[in-house]
């Protein structure tokens, strides 16, 4: 078993579906972050069988709830002074900008490249978002 040291201060993004860590790494633009980042792939998990984990050392100011749009079951552990001070799941954000792309060819976003792709949460229970322009449906995995 691979051992990665604990964090003094930072964030652990846990319960990422196996193979999904790099998507989150890219989404959070972690390669531009001047901090220690550990990506653990295919870790054993009682709940998921296999999972990915990302550990980030240092304070992080990103709105991590937007990650719920990528993978809903992700959990976040906030570490301060070597201890977990907060452990929580993610709430689906009410509105997401430029995370989901509208695929409706009839949508105004299909011809106006500079328009932001904005989706609003339509049903939290089922994880359904709708494009604010054309109401195209997007269902969370």
């Amino acid at each position: 078993m691979l051992n990665i040291g604990g964090l003094h201060q930072g964030v652990v993004i846990d319960h990422i579906p196996a193979g999904g860590a790099m998507r989150i790494y890219d989404y959070l633009n972690l390669d531009a972050l001047d901090a220690e980042v550990a990506i653990i792939k295919n870790a054993s998990s009682k709940k998921m069988g296999r999972k990915d984990i990302i550990k980030i050392e240092g304070p992080i100011t990103i709105d991590l709830d937007t990650l719920a749009v990528l993978y809903r079951g992700i959990t976040i552990n906030i570490i301060e002074n070597d201890e977990i001070v907060e452990k929580r799941g993610l709430r689906l954000p009410e509105r997401v900008t430029n995370i989901i792309r509208c695929k409706n060819p009839r949508c105004i976003t299909s011809i106006e490249q500079e328009l932001p792709h904005v989706f609003k949460l339509a049903d939290e229970k089922t994880g359904v978002y709708r494009c604010i322009y054309c109401e195209e449906r997007f269902k969370m995995k």
């Binding site: 009839r106 949508c107 105004i108 011809i111 604010i132 322009y133 054309c134 109401e135």
Partner: peptide
């Protein structure tokens, strides 16, 4: 407008009231 949501985009940037007179099949 033939594209869905175009009148909404207009409303977001307009200084006057906008009425959607039909946006595609929407």
């Amino acid at each position: 407008h033939p594209k869905e949501g175009a009148p909404l985009v207009a409303a977001m940037h307009a200084g006057i009231p906008v009425i959607n007179a039909g946006d595609g099949g929407h």
